[in-house]
């Protein structure tokens, strides 16, 4: 191979680079097309429109007496709604947030202090904690107790003892009226 190209060789190289450009751009267009075509095949696994339509639940709070809880199903999971007593609220507020495993004040977790609304799924490995029904064990802190691996939650649903790493999560919700709440 000589260093200086003759005009003929130059044309050949020019032609070569044109070919390469064509091949590479075609491959690129084809690859992009294939990638885009793959998206519908992936996206179909995301929640379908009918699933999403049920992603909000409206709950009437009227029948819940003070000191009672109910469980409603939201997105296939239980949501605990507790009408807290003044004593429970006082207990929850009195706790120093900084000392907790997952530091959160009670005010961070409720919109109206008497209504505690949270997803009733233990943050450890997904069991449903006890304590929402009368007569169930409520753990060492008067809230909820997960029987699977012994996590204790307080009256604000915060993890106080046991293997769970996080407080019981609070779903997005809003009060439509004083006694009507929309979850999700």
């Amino acid at each position: 191979m000589s260093e200086t190209a003759t005009p003929e060789q130059g044309a050949e190289i020019d032609d070569q680079s044109k070919r390469d450009f064509l091949f590479i751009s075609t491959a690129a267009v084809g690859a992009v097309g294939t990638a885009i075509a793959a998206w519908p095949f992936i996206d179909q696994m995301n929640p379908a429109a009918d699933t999403l339509a049920l992603s909000t639940t409206e709950v009437s709070l009227e029948p819940i007496e003070e000191g009672q809880s109910i469980t409603v199903v939201w997105r296939g999971k239980p949501v605990f709604i507790r009408h807290r007593t003044a004593e429970e609220i006082a207990d929850a507020v009195a706790v120093q947030a900084n000392d907790l495993i997952d530091p959160q004040t009670d005010a961070d977790r409720v919109q109206k202090p008497e209504w505690l609304i949270m997803v009733g799924v233990c943050t450890h490995l997904g069991c449903i904690p006890l304590g929402n029904k009368a007569g169930e064990s409520r753990g060492d802190f008067g809230g909820w107790f997960c029987p699977c691996h012994g996590s204790h939650y307080d009256t604000s649903g915060r993890i106080r003892k046991g293997p769970a790493p996080k407080n019981l999560p609070v779903p997005e919700y809003s009060f439509l009226s004083d006694l009507k709440v929309k979850i999700g």
Partner: peptide, 13 residues
Amino acid sequence: ERIMRDVNYGWLI
């Protein structure tokens, strides 16, 4: 029909 109406890109597939 749920595939056709509600699943993402279901009609296409």
